[in-house]
Design a binder for these strands. Structure first.
Length: 395
DNA sequence: TCTGGGGTCCTAGGACCC
DNA sequence: TCTGGGGTCCTAGGACCC
């Protein structure tokens, strides 16, 4: 027996951060809730539907959200908790089918073709999945189902909040063509503006433009991608098991920082945070990068690829400081600083350790063990301790 | 209303090798 | 004597996604 024609199921948790907060504090149910950075430069990460009805949306500056919705409850994000709940959600999804591809903490694609034996139609499978998430975890989720991968994601969007939409096989173009182009995956503000200049406003308009025309404005890769999507064509299947490619840590300061000493201290703090994450995720990396954004939002990056992978905080700090040395600060205010590693390699893979690095490796391992037991702030680099005041929060 | 933090992917130019 | 084309890696920047 053949599987369902509409084999792609996209599940998207509704206002995920907000709903997790409501799970542990029921007083937040039914009132506008906004989760996001509470500092002067914070933005909205998640807004409840009560807040959205007042015009609040994610990525909006917090200052603006407070103006639109002064009666809202404002909470800082607790990513550790969201990660825990996300693990529970994905465990539940995998009891449904092992063919699960996570897109972020709160959404995933499932291949449900093989569930034909268990459910009379795809909608019944989607209803059951939503019911399970609701009863087992107490969280609302929306589901979209289609025969084409990216259409299922648009369908879950159309289902929000707390609903289900099935786009029947053969109905893709009717569903798609009236939509504004920016709904397509890969069309952001810049591409939307380019398309608008070509007289393209809807997906239907886009489908009528020859690919060569798109290619000359957008490059061959994006042109082919969009040309296909506009016709409802998406050859991708559900693909799990994607290893991480990079890890990074960055911080936007409430007030621009200036002076080499202050920038250096912030950089060391970030390196320390990043090293901890690398250790916990079991990766080491060959390429170290530095990101710096000035007060005027001008942003630049510097990176270097090393023969031996960087594993622990000391080596990371040394590299990051070298990269910082290649940037002309000239007393300019620094708005954001970030460090990252790419070219990731499994830390457990056999590697050559130089003799001189060995004591450092051991020491760094000890630091992480102590932090695992007593918390991040149990160990702080001496260079960050000279000034009193609050230490950077751990993760 | 000045624009987070975590990522992925693409492009373009230059170095380097054959 | 001068010039080539392909392939790969690295760096920097930028668009985009949640």
């Amino acid at each position: 027996m053949a599987g369902f024609a509409e084999r792609f199921l996209h599940v998207d948790m509704d206002a995920f951060f907000v709903e997790v907060e409501r799970q542990r504090n029921p007083a937040l149910v039914g009132v506008p809730v906004i989760v996001g950075g509470l500092g002067a430069r914070g933005v909205v990460a998640s807004a409840s539907y009560e807040a959205r009805s007042r015009g609040v949306h994610s990525a909006m500056p917090m200052v603006e959200a407070r103006r639109l919705c002064p009666q809202g409850r404002y909470l800082p994000p607790d990513h550790g908790r969201y990660e825990e709940v996300s693990v529970q959600v994905f465990e539940l999804l995998r009891t449904f089918t092992p063919l699960v591809e996570g897109l972020s903490v709160d959404e995933a694609f499932l291949d449900i073709a093989g569930l034909r034996l268990h459910y009379p139609d795809p909608a019944a499978a989607g209803d059951e999945l939503r019911r399970l998430i609701r009863t087992r975890l107490g969280l609302p989720a929306s589901v979209g189902i289609a025969a084409v991968k990216f259409i299922s994601k648009l369908a879950s969007d159309a289902a929000k909040p707390d609903g289900l939409v099935v786009v029947p096989a053969g109905g893709e173009v009717d569903f798609l063509h009236p939509m504004p182009v920016q709904r397509l995956w890969g069309v952001g503000e810049a591409t939307r503006a380019t398309l608008e200049a070509l007289g393209v406003a809807t997906v239907g308009d886009l489908a009528a433009v020859p690919e060569e025309m798109l290619s000359s404005r957008l490059g061959p890769s994006l042109a082919q991608h969009l040309h296909r999507l506009a016709r409802g064509i998406d050859p991708r299947g559900v693909d799990g098991g994607d290893a991480a490619k990079s890890i990074s840590a960055e911080e936007t300061f409430d007030v621009d920082i200036t002076g080499e000493a202050e920038v250096d201290r912030a950089l060391l703090r970030l390196c320390d945070r990043l090293a901890g994450r690398m250790y916990r995720s079991g990766y080491v990396g060959h390429t170290v990068s530095l990101k710096i954004r000035f007060g005027n939002f001008e942003t630049l990056t510097r990176s270097e690829t090393l023969v031996d992978p960087v594993e622990h905080a000391p080596a990371l700090r040394e590299e990051a400081q070298k990269l910082l040395g290649r940037v002309e600060l000239a007393g300019r205010g620094v708005r954001l600083l970030g460090v990252g590693v790419a070219g990731l390699v499994d830390a457990a893979a056999p590697r050559q350790l130089s003799l001189e690095s060995r004591p450092q490796e051991v020491a760094a391992g000890v630091v992480e063990e102590v932090r695992k037991r007593f918390g991040h702030n149990a160990v702080i680099p001496a260079s960050l301790m000279r000034r009193s005041g609050r230490q950077d929060r751990g993760e």
